[in-house]
Design a protein around this nucleic acid. Structure first.
Lengths: 275, 275
DNA sequence: GGAGCGCTGTATCGTATGTTACGTATTTTG
DNA sequence: CAAAATACGTAACATACGATACAGCGCTCC
């Protein structure tokens, strides 16, 4: 079973003529980056001519150079998305049944936060903590609980936080109260829901700022969103994982609370006395 | 000090017009691979035109698209050569506000799963997948969204899954339908809610098996529970974190789905056709 | 409400890139 | 040692890619 181009090469390098072998060796030595550059640059690095490079990729079974590059990119993409598979050898850890799921989830979180800058989060926190406008939250079929979770916390540290629940017609009607100063937090991962997209579009037209929690393939709502948080969702399960988005949500909740510390502390005391 | 293109983007994304911001977001979400493809493919993925992509890279300070791609490749090369440097976020070095939160959460998860045996999980899965009885789910003030999340998934792979929502009196009345073969999944972390404890006690008296998700200090409901999952909740925030429990929930969802694979696949197909 | 500015997409252009044909060099085999 | 076959590079070609000019549109600010 040959899965990567690197394996394919080492499998066939013996049957190659001298020039192509030099190409193969340079590619292996700088794998896979040389292969992503132009055929001319590749040929220069290998010290051969560009036609030799083309014959080389043809011998590997590719129709043309772009096809070869695409395959390399796909390979790279697969590597970059699951850091674990690359860093640790499979035999090193004890074979627990649950740990693949846990490991994947931990990777997803690290990866999600790696693509999330402090500045981006700070901007979102500032917007969520801005009390001149209202905050609305809504989610899709499986992610609506995340919207609820976030709403439950935010509603405690500040007024004017609303979770949009129930039937579509109900929350569509709420659009009438939304305007420029307001924020709409939407959770939407595959398979993206049309109803949410329509809702987001209308809200956007009304000038509402949208904060979108989605997966790495980006919900179509990203079109209308002011801020996009792309979480990794891939786990060894029949379902996608929302855990990374959940942690981002908790991080934001914590940051908003700290931001509003003075006010929220007072508010929380008041709430306590109401019980 | 800006070292990577990703940082550069998050630094300037605030000043970008809508179209270029979409480009920026898609690049961040699929970093950095989309940027290595052609401008046309990039533009299609971002849902904008190719000139917008070119204006985007120009705004980042590049003379032309190839120069932008070369920089991305160099960055990738540096990463691939020292795998260690990739795993840590550059911002985690200089006192970032978010990464303590992430680190604590990751620790919580590892710690939570360390105290969770495969056998314990397998028992719970077996019980949840047992279709002779009904499954009820409920949670506390902040954890009810977790109950909803779990219910939303379980209800798809098997019948007779119910989330108990609304006012206390409503779900108390549902006790009448609960019996020995049924399972009640409860989420309860500090501060533990009296209403839930009373509910759990009554259910227990009726012979209902209780699966409890709680924190490491154990809700009083643990007294009545057949299975207890104790998650770590401590994070540097004003709030406790439910993320570890969330991941356990997802793990169970995945395991139950696999357990019921044959039946659930058929069921899911049926559901699809109902849309 | 009107004028100005800035953003974005369409269409066109030039060019860099991959591709192919061909001739020479090199190796292999009878 | 000779002849043939294979490999390799040079040069011409075509395509597809990035760049640019321009027009339409929405937005903001008087």
């Amino acid at each position: 079973m040959i899965s990567s181009i690197a394996e394919l090469i080492s499998d066939r390098i013996g049957t190659m003529p001298a020039g192509e072998r030099r190409a193969a060796q340079t590619l292996i030595a700088n794998y896979p980056l040389i292969g992503l550059k132009t055929a001319a640059e590749f040929s220069a690095a290998a010290g051969v001519s560009s036609p030799t490079i083309l014959r080389f990729v043809a011998r590997l079974g590719f129709q043309n150079y772009p096809e070869f590059q695409s395959t390399l990119q796909d390979e790279l993409a697969a590597q970059l998305q699951s850091p674990a598979s690359r860093t640790l050898n499979p035999s090193s850890l004890g074979g627990s049944a649950v740990s693949p799921m846990l490991e994947a989830t931990l990777d997803n979180m690290r990866e999600t936060f790696r693509h999330l800058s402090d500045k981006q989060l700070a901007d979102i926190v500032a917007k969520l903590a801005d009390r001149r406008g209202k905050t609305y939250l809504i989610g899709g079929r499986f992610t609506d609980p995340l919207a609820r979770y976030m709403a439950a916390h935010l509603a405690i540290v500040q007024p004017n936080v609303f979770h949009l629940a129930g039937q579509e017609s109900i929350w569509r009607d709420r659009l009438i109260d939304m305007g420029k100063r307001d924020v709409l937090v939407i959770f939407d991962i595959r398979r993206y829901q049309d109803s949410l997209v329509r809702f987001a579009e209308t809200a956007h037209q009304r000038g509402v700022q949208i904060v979108l929690f989605t997966d790495q393939w980006l919900s179509p709502i990203a079109r209308f969103a002011r801020h996009v948080i792309a979480g990794r969702t891939a786990v060894p399960s029949a379902w996608d994982s929302s855990a990374a988005l959940f942690v981002v949500a908790e991080t934001l909740i914590g940051a908003v609370t700290r931001q509003l510390e003075a006010d929220s502390a007072k508010r929380i005391r008041e709430l306590e006395s109401l019980r």
